[in-house]
Amino acid sequence: MTLAREGWLGREAAHQQRADALTAEHRARSARGEKHPVWDFLFTYYGYKPAQLRRWHPGAGVELADAAERASWRWYSPGASDDAVVPDAAAFAREKPELAGLVERMLRRTASRPGQFGCFGLHEWAMVYRAEEHRHPVPLRLGQAGTDAVVESHDLRCTHFDAFRFFTPEAVPRNRTALSRDEQPLFEQPGCLHAGMDLYKWAMKLGPLIPGELLLDAFELARDIRLLDMQAAPYDLSAWDVVPVPIETADGKSEYVRRQRGFAERGTALRSALLTAWFGDGARAAA
Rank of each mutant, 00 (worst) to 15 (best):
Glu104Asn: 10
Glu104Gln: 12
Glu104Asp: 14
Glu104Ala: 12
Arg105Val: 13
Met106Gly: 07
Met106Asn: 12
Met106Glu: 14
Met106Gln: 14
Leu107Thr: 06
Leu107Pro: 05
Leu107His: 09
Arg108Lys: 15
Arg109Asn: 06
Arg109Glu: 10
Thr110Ile: 05
Thr110Met: 13
Ala111His: 07
Ala111Ser: 10
Ser112Glu: 11
Ser112Gly: 12
Ser112Asp: 11
Ser112Val: 03
Arg113Thr: 02
Arg113Gln: 04
Arg113Lys: 12
Arg113Ala: 02
Arg113Pro: 02
Pro114Asp: 15
Pro114Phe: 12
Pro114Gly: 08
Pro114Arg: 15
Gly115Leu: 14
Gly115Pro: 09
Gln116Leu: 15
Gln116Val: 15
Phe117Val: 13
Gly118Ala: 09
Cys119Asp: 15
Phe120Gln: 02
Phe120Pro: 04
Phe120His: 13
Gly121Val: 03
Gly121Gln: 07
Leu122Met: 06
Leu122His: 01
Leu122Pro: 03
Leu122Cys: 06
Leu122Asn: 00
His123Asn: 08
His123Ser: 05
His123Met: 03
Glu124Val: 10
Trp125Ser: 00
Met127Asp: 00
Met127Asn: 06
Met127Arg: 11
Val128Leu: 01
Val128Asn: 01
Val128Ala: 02
Val128Pro: 02
Tyr129Leu: 05
Arg130Ala: 09
Arg130Thr: 04
Arg130Leu: 09
Ala131Pro: 04
Ala131Met: 08
Glu132Trp: 05
Glu132Thr: 13
Glu132Pro: 02
Glu133Gly: 04
Glu133Cys: 05
His134Ile: 07
His134Arg: 14
Arg135Asp: 14
Arg135Thr: 14
His136Tyr: 14
His136Ile: 10
His136Gly: 02
Pro137Glu: 08
Val138Ser: 08
Val138Trp: 06
Val138Tyr: 03
Val138Pro: 05
Val138Asp: 07
Pro139Asp: 05
Arg141His: 04
Arg141Leu: 11
Arg141Val: 05
Arg141Ile: 08
Arg141Phe: 03
Arg141Pro: 02
Leu142Trp: 10
Gly143Cys: 01
Gly143Tyr: 00
Gly143Phe: 01
Gln144Met: 08
Gln144Ile: 04
Ala145Lys: 00
Ala145Thr: 01
Gly146His: 03
Gly146Pro: 03
Thr147Ser: 07
Thr147Gln: 01
Thr147Arg: 00
Asp148Lys: 01
Asp148Cys: 00
Ala149Thr: 03
Ala149Glu: 12
Ala149Arg: 13
Val150Leu: 10
Val150Phe: 03
Val150Gln: 00
Val151Tyr: 02
Glu152Gln: 09
Glu152Val: 04
Ser153Thr: 13
His154Lys: 13
Asp155Leu: 14
Asp155Trp: 14
Asp155Thr: 15
Leu156Tyr: 05
Leu156Gly: 04
Leu156Asn: 07
Arg157Ile: 07
Arg157Asn: 12
Arg157Val: 09
Arg157Cys: 11
Cys158Leu: 11
Cys158Thr: 07
Cys158Ala: 07
Cys158Glu: 05
Thr159Gly: 06
His160Met: 08
His160Gln: 12
Phe161Met: 06
Phe161Pro: 00
Phe161Trp: 10
